[in-house]
Design a protein around this nucleic acid. Structure first.
Lengths: 133, 133
DNA sequence: TACTCAATAATATTAAATATCAATAAGAAG
DNA sequence: CTTCTTATTGATATTTAATATTATTGAGTA
């Protein structure tokens, strides 16, 4: 199937790169709609799927909340704050090698993995301890 | 708030233990409904939440698909097959220590993590290669 | 046995994402 | 440039997982 270039798709790619970290489809839609209010929500979803299949952007599947979309960059993991729900980057060199270690142990063909840490971010931690007094 | 014991809650716990691995709320509901067709889907969800809060069962949040519920057992990770969608156990001793390693590096209070591998299970792999011929 | 309110059943609602489909426009061919 | 094909769009409906709502029921105490 031949892929056509559309303005809508460039809008989506631009928005992901502009928002630049962990944006949800809804946030991306809103960003685009600011300048191009006629764009359809379905189109944003469709192109987010396409772009991540094409390897132009990275999809981060978060259990419990909406998928996030990132620009392609160094491989990193994510932490989700249980209090505010925000997602932060974690650079984890020591996780590399994990996959290859597992590949040996099972009949599975591993194609990837997601590690999603959860915890409480410094900001929420502070609010919590100050409110506790 | 005083917690009351209900037959429905025991049904849910029994079903989780019987199905015993990675059952979805819907599967658990169906299992119970076989014998007790009057149980409400909402009650199943409510009790799955309660039981996992109480630490009686373990909730596995899977990005993309419905949450799974497990009986409490040894700590293990999960692999989701991209083809058939089934979830399998992975015992991973070497992942322990990961959390403590990270705890040092950030201002975060880590409360846990999920590692969800994805790949293609032996069964689907076989079907694929035999069909490819 | 009677009383209180936590828990239930049934239904409505929400949220994230996909499916449907007529209308539009990308890009090749003439 | 004009025409043609069909991928893509916009709009809406639908799906799926889960929660909210609320009158009713029943667990546990008094």
């Amino acid at each position: 199937m031949i892929r056509r270039n559309t303005i809508q798709r460039t809008f989506v790619l631009e928005a992901v790169n502009k928002l630049h970290c962990h944006a949800t489809a809804d946030e991306i839609y809103n960003e685009i709609a600011k300048k191009h209010p006629t764009i359809s929500r379905a189109t944003v979803y469709r192109n987010l799927n396409l772009l991540s299949e094409m390897g132009e952007i990275r999809r981060l599947e978060l259990p419990g909340s909406a998928d996030r979309f990132d620009h392609i960059s160094s491989n990193h993991c994510h932490v989700k704050c249980e209090v505010c729900g925000r997602v932060f980057d974690v650079d984890m060199d020591f996780v590399s090698g994990l996959e290859s270690g597992i590949r040996d142990a099972h009949g599975f063909d591993f194609t990837g993995y997601d590690i999603i840490f959860h915890g409480i971010c410094p900001e929420c931690k502070e609010q919590k301890s100050s409110g506790k007094e």
